[in-house]
Amino acid sequence: MDQFVTILLLPLALAILMFGLGLSLSIIDFRRLILFPGPLLLGLAGHILCLPLIAFLIAIVMKLPPPIAVSLIVIAACPCGITSNVLTFIGRADVALSITMTAVSSLISVFTTPLFVMLALKTFYGDMAMPNLHLGSAMEKLFLYTALPILSGIAVRIFYPVLTRQLLLWLRPVGFGILLTTIAYSVLMNWSLVLENIIVMGPLALLLNLIAISFGLWLGRQFYLDSRQKLTLTLGLGVQNATMATFIAVTVLDRIDYAAAPTIYGAIMVLNGLVLIRFVRLRYS
């Protein structure tokens, strides 16, 4: 059953969610990218470069053990999560910007995420035996389960718009159903690991998420984004693709013990995202 989840269900959930993301992108989103690239580029730079560096800094300053340090960096090196699109919609922020940021960061992460994970393994394991990571194989797997489904979804939307509307009606609930099933099974199978790691990983995940949110708010103020773009940017930085982080842990690195961290972080990032939305609504209402 473990192999069924890690080899089939988890990759399938990731691919379906990424395909649905590609279907959600429109020509208007690409036009926005060309005409108003500032907020998007700001979000991508913050997410792809700054967050992994922040995770590295936390791990080095706090002298974290290698498994915890690498787990934290795997989370930070993953792109924006689709959950950020949902939270952006709930918060009445810029959904088009959120979807575009998630899609573009997911495409770029095919190359950047394995590089950061490899750097983390070499930095924190040193001469000790460490999980095996082959960069070419890791990039290939991420391309197959993230970039290719996104590009396929974009192609279907362009050439088959009627089919796209029909697919979106059932694909989103199916995708999220598979995702929730995978997460629930992961939690149940790794419950002891979650309990073992929550005392250490819980505060670290909270710290990383609060820094990401604070960094997003700071960037939004520094570059004079409007309130909707600022909230979108902050949610994008604070909500990682926990499904991809779990996929990397159990499928790419073959380390089931690394799967506890994305589960813990995933719960924290959603709760903090909802609190942020509530705070913004109260402030601007």
Rank of each mutant, 00 (worst) to 15 (best):
Q3K: 07
F4L: 15
F4P: 06
L9H: 13
L12C: 14
A13S: 13
L21M: 14
L21C: 06
L25Y: 05
L25M: 11
L25N: 07
L33Y: 11
I34K: 10
I34A: 12
L35R: 15
F36G: 00
P37D: 02
P39L: 07
L41C: 13
L44I: 14
I48A: 09
P52F: 00
F56S: 05
F56W: 04
L57K: 07
V61R: 08
L64E: 14
P66K: 01
S71T: 08
S71D: 11
L72Q: 05
L72D: 03
L72R: 02
P79A: 09
G81H: 06
T83Y: 04
T83D: 06
N85E: 10
V86H: 07
T88Y: 03
T88K: 05
F89N: 09
G91R: 03
G91L: 03
L97R: 08
S98E: 06
T100G: 06
V104A: 09
S105Q: 04
L107D: 07
S109V: 00
V110W: 02
V110K: 06
L115Y: 02
F116Q: 06
K122Q: 14
K122T: 12
Y125T: 04
M128H: 05
M130A: 10
G136T: 05
S137T: 11
A138H: 03
L142K: 12
A147Y: 12
A147F: 12
P149Y: 08
P149R: 01
I150L: 08
L163D: 05
Q166E: 12
L168P: 01
L169E: 15
W170Q: 02
R172S: 10
R172C: 01
P173R: 10
I178M: 11
I178S: 07
T181F: 15
T182D: 10
Y185S: 15
V187R: 07
N190H: 14
N190C: 14
W191P: 00
S192T: 15
L193F: 06
L193I: 07
L195T: 10
N197C: 00
I199A: 08
I199W: 06
L207T: 14
L207E: 12
L208H: 01
L210D: 09
A212M: 10
I213Y: 11
L217S: 02
W218H: 05
G220K: 01
F223A: 03
F223P: 06
L225E: 03
D226V: 07
Q229E: 14
Q229I: 01
G236I: 06
L237V: 13
M244F: 08
T246S: 13
I248W: 01
L253R: 11
D254S: 04
I256N: 03
D257K: 05
Y258H: 06
A259R: 02
T263P: 00
G273D: 12
V275Q: 02
R278W: 15
V280C: 04
R283V: 04
